[in-house]
């Protein structure tokens, strides 16, 4: 029972997802096409014509892995905010779960498992579209998926912990406006981090997205990145520390 608890929570999410997936289908299937088309190909043609400094890589190929990692972050952030508030405060389904043999940490881990499933689906679709548009080859396209999933999880875990500390959803607006959106813009998604002022470069490298983008891009472009191990380590650290914090905060909220 104790190890299976997280699986039960995952099952619960999957059954819900079976009923609600249509709501997120547009973002999953259509946005990658729009973004890769308009920015990757449209804007990219100007970038490439101007003689790009992107190490001989076309802008679409540069953008695709960055956009993938960045959208993984956004999906993960969304799944770790409002649904957590719902479980803890609105529908109180987490209270119902801890009245059974399940423990708060099963909820935290089960939620992360579901975010992983969501990310695998979204990243696979994105990757397939990127390959179809010629951004990368199929093998590299497939290998981008786990990197993007890890990037998303590095956000999902700490954001779940953050959500457990919130009384209402006002904090989520702040999170998306002042953390998620700036990160999406300044973590190397659209242009190399090296173009940023030194101080902002430092800030960018302290957050998971810069590492996620760098990791996914190194895989997509096949350019060996000496800092690959560091990227992995940072992402894993955010995931593990975030998961432990989320489990502890869920416990504090549910068992009192």
């Amino acid at each position: 029972m104790r190890t299976g608890g997280s699986i039960r929570i995952l099952e619960h999410h999957l059954l819900r997802y079976r009923r609600t997936w249509r709501g997120s289908a547009i973002t999953t299937f259509v946005s990658p096409l729009f973004f890769l088309g308009s920015i990757g190909i449209g804007l990219g043609s100007f970038v490439d014509a101007g003689g790009s400094a992107l190490a001989g890589v076309g802008y679409l190929a540069f953008l695709a892995p960055g956009l993938l990692a960045s959208s993984a972050m956004q999906t993960a952030a969304f799944e770790s905010t409002y649904p957590v508030m719902g479980g803890l405060r609105w529908d109180r389904t987490y209270q119902a779960a801890v009245a059974t043999p399940l423990l708060p940490r099963h909820i935290a881990i089960g939620n992360l498992a579901f975010v992983a499933v969501r990310l695998v689906i979204a990243a696979s679709v994105f990757s397939a579209i990127a390959v179809a548009l010629g951004a990368t080859d199929p093998l590299r396209g497939a290998l981008m998926v786990p990197a993007a999933v890890l990037t998303g999880l590095a956000f999902a875990a700490p954001i779940q912990a953050f959500s457990a500390t919130q009384r209402g959803d006002a904090g989520f607006t702040i999170l998306f406006r002042f953390v998620i959106t700036p990160l999406a813009l300044f973590s190397g998604t659209f242009f190399p981090i090296a173009e940023l002022p030194a101080i902002l470069q430092l800030v960018a490298w302290l957050t998971p997205l810069a590492h996620g983008v760098a990791l996914t891009r190194a895989i997509a472009l096949g350019t060996p990145d000496p800092a690959m191990a560091l990227h992995l380590a940072v992402l894993l650290a955010y995931l593990v520390v975030g998961a432990v914090a989320a489990a502890a905060l869920f416990r504090r909220r549910l068992i009192a």
Binding site: M1, L15, R16, R92, Q95, A99, P101, L102
Partner: peptide
């Protein structure tokens, strides 16, 4: 595992059907 709990607030899953709420809760008890 041996208790049944009916809390003050219903804490049902609004995204699921009536029957699914029961089936999933049964799964929570393995």
């Amino acid at each position: 595992a041996l208790l049944g709990v009916v809390p003050q607030q219903d804490s049902l899953d609004m995204e699921l059907t009536v029957r699914e709420n029961l089936i999933l809760y049964g799964r929570y008890f393995d």
